[in-house]
Protein backbone atom coordinates (compact mmCIF):
# COMPACT_ATOMS: atom_id res chain seq x y z
CA UNK A 1 0.00 0.00 0.00
CA UNK A 2 1.27 3.45 -0.89
CA UNK A 3 -0.26 5.94 1.52
CA UNK A 4 0.79 9.05 -0.38
CA UNK A 5 -2.09 11.22 -1.57
CA UNK A 6 -4.81 8.98 -0.17
CA UNK A 7 -7.87 10.43 1.51
CA UNK A 8 -9.39 7.89 3.82
CA UNK A 9 -13.17 7.80 4.35
CA UNK A 10 -12.60 7.96 8.11
CA UNK A 11 -10.05 9.63 10.41
CA UNK A 12 -6.66 7.89 10.52
CA UNK A 13 -4.08 8.44 13.24
CA UNK A 14 -0.91 9.88 11.73
CA UNK A 15 -2.59 11.42 8.68
CA UNK A 16 -3.29 15.17 8.52
CA UNK A 17 -3.81 15.40 12.30
CA UNK A 18 -7.08 13.43 11.96
CA UNK A 19 -6.56 11.84 15.36
CA UNK A 20 -4.53 13.22 18.28
CA UNK A 21 -2.06 12.99 19.84
CA UNK A 22 0.19 12.46 16.81
CA UNK A 23 2.27 9.27 16.98
CA UNK A 24 6.03 9.09 16.39
CA UNK A 25 8.20 6.38 14.95
CA UNK A 26 11.92 5.74 15.14
CA UNK A 27 13.47 3.28 12.70
CA UNK A 28 17.11 2.24 13.08
CA UNK A 29 18.53 0.16 10.24
CA UNK A 30 21.44 -2.21 10.56
CA UNK A 31 22.80 -5.22 8.74
CA UNK A 32 25.20 -8.12 8.96
CA UNK A 33 26.42 -10.62 6.40
CA UNK A 34 23.09 -12.47 6.25
CA UNK A 35 20.32 -9.95 7.01
CA UNK A 36 19.04 -6.42 7.21
CA UNK A 37 17.61 -5.44 10.62
CA UNK A 38 15.12 -2.75 11.48
CA UNK A 39 14.68 -1.82 15.11
CA UNK A 40 11.39 0.02 15.31
CA UNK A 41 10.22 2.07 18.28
CA UNK A 42 6.74 3.59 18.23
CA UNK A 43 5.20 6.16 20.54
CA UNK A 44 1.42 6.09 20.50
CA UNK A 45 -0.61 7.67 23.27
CA UNK A 46 -4.15 7.68 21.90
CA UNK A 47 -6.03 5.78 24.59
CA UNK A 48 -8.90 4.53 22.44
CA UNK A 49 -6.54 2.97 19.93
CA UNK A 50 -4.33 1.49 22.63
CA UNK A 51 -7.44 -0.09 24.15
CA UNK A 52 -8.48 -1.53 20.76
CA UNK A 53 -5.01 -3.08 20.40
CA UNK A 54 -5.09 -4.47 23.93
CA UNK A 55 -8.57 -5.98 23.39
CA UNK A 56 -7.41 -7.58 20.12
CA UNK A 57 -9.58 -5.43 17.86
CA UNK A 58 -6.45 -4.06 16.22
CA UNK A 59 -2.81 -4.93 15.54
CA UNK A 60 0.36 -3.00 14.94
CA UNK A 61 1.78 -4.07 11.59
CA UNK A 62 4.84 -3.60 9.42
CA UNK A 63 4.48 -4.40 5.74
CA UNK A 64 7.72 -5.15 3.91
CA UNK A 65 7.50 -5.04 0.16
CA UNK A 66 10.30 -5.60 -2.33
CA UNK A 67 8.70 -5.49 -5.82
CA UNK A 68 11.95 -6.46 -7.58
CA UNK A 69 12.32 -9.79 -5.79
CA UNK A 70 8.60 -10.47 -5.16
CA UNK A 71 9.38 -10.57 -1.42
CA UNK A 72 6.36 -9.45 0.57
CA UNK A 73 5.74 -9.95 4.25
CA UNK A 74 3.44 -8.54 6.88
CA UNK A 75 4.63 -8.59 10.48
CA UNK A 76 1.91 -7.97 13.08
CA UNK A 77 1.78 -7.83 16.86
CA UNK A 78 1.00 -5.72 19.89
CA UNK A 79 4.39 -4.36 20.97
CA UNK A 80 5.40 -0.78 20.26
CA UNK A 81 9.05 -1.82 20.14
CA UNK A 82 9.93 -4.60 17.75
CA UNK A 83 12.54 -5.75 15.26
CA UNK A 84 12.06 -6.86 11.70
CA UNK A 85 14.69 -9.03 10.01
CA UNK A 86 14.93 -9.37 6.24
CA UNK A 87 17.26 -12.04 4.81
CA UNK A 88 19.59 -10.49 2.24
CA UNK A 89 18.91 -13.49 0.00
CA UNK A 90 15.29 -12.35 -0.27
CA UNK A 91 15.61 -8.81 -1.54
CA UNK A 92 17.16 -6.54 -4.13
CA UNK A 93 16.76 -2.90 -5.19
CA UNK A 94 14.09 -0.83 -3.42
CA UNK A 95 12.40 -2.11 -0.27
CA UNK A 96 9.41 -0.36 1.25
CA UNK A 97 8.32 -0.53 4.88
CA UNK A 98 4.90 0.68 5.95
CA UNK A 99 4.22 0.76 9.68
CA UNK A 100 0.77 1.31 11.13
CA UNK A 101 -2.22 0.02 13.02
CA UNK A 102 -4.81 -2.17 11.33
CA UNK A 103 -8.28 -3.36 12.32
CA UNK A 104 -8.30 -7.06 13.18
CA UNK A 105 -11.95 -7.57 14.16
CA UNK A 106 -14.96 -5.58 13.03
CA UNK A 107 -15.67 -2.47 15.12
CA UNK A 108 -19.32 -1.43 14.79
CA UNK A 109 -19.08 1.95 16.39
CA UNK A 110 -15.58 3.44 16.18
CA UNK A 111 -15.40 6.72 18.05
CA UNK A 112 -12.33 8.36 19.45
CA UNK A 113 -11.92 11.27 21.89
CA UNK A 114 -8.82 12.19 19.93
CA UNK A 115 -10.72 12.82 16.65
CA UNK A 116 -10.09 16.21 15.06
CA UNK A 117 -13.08 18.42 15.75
CA UNK A 118 -14.28 17.97 12.15
CA UNK A 119 -15.07 14.37 13.07
CA UNK A 120 -16.43 14.98 16.57
CA UNK A 121 -19.77 13.27 17.09
CA UNK A 122 -19.30 10.86 14.17
CA UNK A 123 -18.78 7.13 14.45
CA UNK A 124 -17.56 4.66 11.88
CA UNK A 125 -17.92 0.98 11.08
CA UNK A 126 -14.43 -0.44 10.72
CA UNK A 127 -13.78 -3.73 8.95
CA UNK A 128 -10.74 -6.04 9.16
CA UNK A 129 -7.89 -4.64 7.11
CA UNK A 130 -8.95 -1.00 7.55
CA UNK A 131 -6.19 1.34 8.65
CA UNK A 132 -6.54 2.91 12.08
CA UNK A 133 -3.16 4.57 12.07
CA UNK A 134 -0.01 5.15 10.07
CA UNK A 135 3.37 5.71 11.68
CA UNK A 136 5.26 6.16 8.47
CA UNK A 137 6.54 4.77 5.23
CA UNK A 138 10.25 4.13 4.76
CA UNK A 139 12.34 2.87 1.91
CA UNK A 140 15.90 1.78 1.38
CA UNK A 141 17.88 0.26 -1.43
CA UNK A 142 19.29 -3.20 -0.79
CA UNK A 143 21.73 -2.97 -3.70
CA UNK A 144 23.52 0.24 -2.84
CA UNK A 145 26.91 -0.44 -1.27
CA UNK A 146 26.58 2.11 1.49
CA UNK A 147 30.13 1.48 2.65
CA UNK A 148 31.57 2.08 -0.83
CA UNK A 149 29.56 5.09 -2.01
CA UNK A 150 32.64 7.10 -2.93
CA UNK A 151 34.28 4.40 -5.04
CA UNK A 152 33.92 5.20 -8.74
CA UNK A 153 33.89 1.53 -9.70
CA UNK A 154 30.60 1.09 -7.82
CA UNK A 155 28.81 3.16 -10.45
CA UNK A 156 31.01 3.18 -13.56
CA UNK A 157 32.96 0.75 -15.73
CA UNK A 158 35.02 0.93 -18.90
CA UNK A 159 34.47 -1.70 -21.57
CA UNK A 160 35.71 -2.45 -25.05
CA UNK A 161 33.69 -1.29 -28.06
CA UNK A 162 34.25 -4.07 -30.57
CA UNK A 163 31.83 -2.68 -33.12
CA UNK A 164 33.33 0.58 -34.31
CA UNK A 165 35.92 3.25 -33.58
CA UNK A 166 33.77 5.54 -31.48
CA UNK A 167 33.69 6.08 -27.74
CA UNK A 168 30.18 5.52 -26.45
CA UNK A 169 28.30 5.82 -23.18
CA UNK A 170 25.52 3.49 -22.04
CA UNK A 171 23.36 4.60 -19.12
CA UNK A 172 20.93 1.69 -19.11
CA UNK A 173 22.83 -0.83 -16.96
CA UNK A 174 23.75 -1.08 -13.29
CA UNK A 175 26.94 0.86 -13.94
CA UNK A 176 27.54 3.71 -16.35
CA UNK A 177 29.37 2.01 -19.19
CA UNK A 178 32.06 3.74 -21.18
CA UNK A 179 32.81 1.81 -24.37
CA UNK A 180 36.27 2.58 -25.77
CA UNK A 181 37.38 1.44 -29.25
CA UNK A 182 39.64 -1.60 -29.08
CA UNK A 183 42.92 0.26 -29.46
CA UNK A 184 42.05 2.83 -26.78
CA UNK A 185 40.68 0.13 -24.51
CA UNK A 186 43.98 -1.78 -24.71
CA UNK A 187 45.88 1.40 -23.84
CA UNK A 188 43.45 2.15 -21.03
CA UNK A 189 44.01 -1.30 -19.52
CA UNK A 190 47.76 -0.69 -19.54
CA UNK A 191 47.61 2.82 -18.05
CA UNK A 192 44.88 2.10 -15.48
CA UNK A 193 47.27 -0.28 -13.76
CA UNK A 194 50.17 2.15 -13.90
CA UNK A 195 49.13 4.91 -11.52
CA UNK A 196 47.19 7.06 -14.01
CA UNK A 197 43.78 6.62 -12.40
CA UNK A 198 43.44 10.27 -11.33
CA UNK A 199 44.11 11.42 -14.88
CA UNK A 200 41.54 8.94 -16.18
CA UNK A 201 39.02 10.21 -13.61
CA UNK A 202 39.44 13.80 -14.67
CA UNK A 203 39.05 13.02 -18.36
CA UNK A 204 37.14 9.89 -19.40
CA UNK A 205 35.21 9.43 -16.14
CA UNK A 206 34.44 13.14 -15.71
CA UNK A 207 33.01 13.41 -19.21
CA UNK A 208 30.90 10.28 -18.82
CA UNK A 209 29.55 11.53 -15.51
CA UNK A 210 28.74 14.89 -17.05
CA UNK A 211 26.90 13.13 -19.87
CA UNK A 212 24.99 10.96 -17.39
CA UNK A 213 23.83 13.84 -15.22
CA UNK A 214 22.93 16.01 -18.21
CA UNK A 215 20.63 13.17 -19.33
CA UNK A 216 19.14 12.65 -15.87
CA UNK A 217 15.67 13.60 -17.06
CA UNK A 218 15.51 10.29 -18.97
CA UNK A 219 15.53 8.42 -15.65
CA UNK A 220 12.32 7.77 -13.77
CA UNK A 221 13.39 8.08 -10.14
CA UNK A 222 9.85 7.52 -8.89
CA UNK A 223 10.14 3.78 -9.52
CA UNK A 224 12.46 1.61 -7.47
CA UNK A 225 14.02 -0.14 -10.42
CA UNK A 226 16.01 2.47 -12.28
CA UNK A 227 19.69 1.69 -12.90
CA UNK A 228 21.81 1.09 -9.81
CA UNK A 229 24.40 3.74 -10.77
CA UNK A 230 21.62 6.34 -10.75
CA UNK A 231 20.20 5.06 -7.45
CA UNK A 232 23.68 5.30 -5.90
CA UNK A 233 24.28 8.83 -7.21
CA UNK A 234 20.75 9.89 -6.24
CA UNK A 235 21.25 8.60 -2.70
CA UNK A 236 24.50 10.59 -2.40
CA UNK A 237 22.91 13.75 -3.78
CA UNK A 238 20.00 13.48 -1.34
CA UNK A 239 21.96 12.61 1.78
CA UNK A 240 25.50 14.04 1.63
CA UNK A 241 26.01 17.43 3.24
CA UNK A 242 28.05 18.93 0.40
CA UNK A 243 25.16 18.63 -2.07
CA UNK A 244 22.58 20.41 0.09
CA UNK A 245 23.51 23.81 -1.42
CA UNK A 246 22.04 22.66 -4.77
CA UNK A 247 18.56 22.21 -3.27
CA UNK A 248 17.96 19.01 -5.28
CA UNK A 249 14.39 17.74 -5.06
CA UNK A 250 13.18 15.87 -8.14
CA UNK A 251 15.66 17.03 -10.76
CA UNK A 252 19.34 17.84 -11.04
CA UNK A 253 19.76 21.58 -11.80
CA UNK A 254 21.43 21.62 -15.21
CA UNK A 255 23.34 24.84 -14.48
CA UNK A 256 25.08 23.15 -11.54
CA UNK A 257 25.90 19.82 -13.17
CA UNK A 258 29.61 20.56 -13.67
CA UNK A 259 29.98 21.56 -10.01
CA UNK A 260 28.06 18.51 -8.81
CA UNK A 261 30.24 16.21 -10.90
CA UNK A 262 33.39 17.79 -9.46
CA UNK A 263 32.10 17.14 -5.94
CA UNK A 264 31.03 13.57 -6.79
CA UNK A 265 34.49 12.81 -8.15
CA UNK A 266 36.27 14.67 -5.32
CA UNK A 267 37.90 17.50 -7.24
CA UNK A 268 39.23 15.47 -10.21
CA UNK A 269 41.25 18.34 -11.76
CA UNK A 270 43.27 18.82 -8.59
CA UNK A 271 43.82 15.08 -8.40
CA UNK A 272 44.92 15.04 -12.04
CA UNK A 273 47.54 17.77 -11.50
CA UNK A 274 48.73 16.10 -8.30
CA UNK A 275 49.01 12.87 -10.28
CA UNK A 276 51.04 14.55 -13.02
CA UNK A 277 53.30 16.12 -10.38
CA UNK A 278 53.83 12.75 -8.78
CA UNK A 279 54.68 11.20 -12.11
CA UNK A 280 57.13 14.03 -12.87
CA UNK A 281 58.59 13.89 -9.39
CA UNK A 282 57.90 17.58 -8.77
CA UNK A 283 55.88 19.43 -6.11
CA UNK A 284 53.99 21.56 -8.59
CA UNK A 285 53.82 21.96 -12.33
CA UNK A 286 52.66 25.56 -11.92
CA UNK A 287 55.73 27.78 -11.94
CA UNK A 288 56.19 31.54 -12.16
CA UNK A 289 58.16 31.42 -15.38
Amino acid sequence: MNINNISFPYPVLGINGDVLPEPTCEVVKGDDKESFFFNIKLTQENETINKLIAEDYADIFCEIDCPSSYFRQCWSGKDTSFSVTIPKKSVRAKIWLLIGIVVKKRIDDYQNDGFHEDYKGFSFVMEPGDLLGVFGQYDFDADIKYDKLQAVNTFMEIRENKEDEETRYDLTNDKIRIYLPTQLFTQYQRFAKSGFSDIIHSSIVYNAMLHALCNWNEIDTSSGSYPLWARTIWYRLKTEEEFKEFGITDEIPIQDVYRIVQKLLKDPYKRMFDNICDLQGTDSILTDD
Binding site: M1, P9, D59, C74, G100, V102, P128, G129, D130
Partner: peptide, 10 residues
Protein backbone atom coordinates in the same frame (compact mmCIF):
# COMPACT_ATOMS: atom_id res chain seq x y z
CA UNK B 1 -9.82 -1.71 -2.14
CA UNK B 2 -6.06 -1.82 -1.50
CA UNK B 3 -6.10 1.96 -1.48
CA UNK B 4 -7.64 1.96 1.99
CA UNK B 5 -7.18 -1.58 3.27
CA UNK B 6 -4.02 -3.40 4.27
CA UNK B 7 -4.46 -6.30 1.84
CA UNK B 8 -1.12 -7.77 2.88
CA UNK B 9 -2.50 -8.29 6.41
CA UNK B 10 -5.62 -10.16 5.32
Amino acid sequence: LGGVKMLCYL
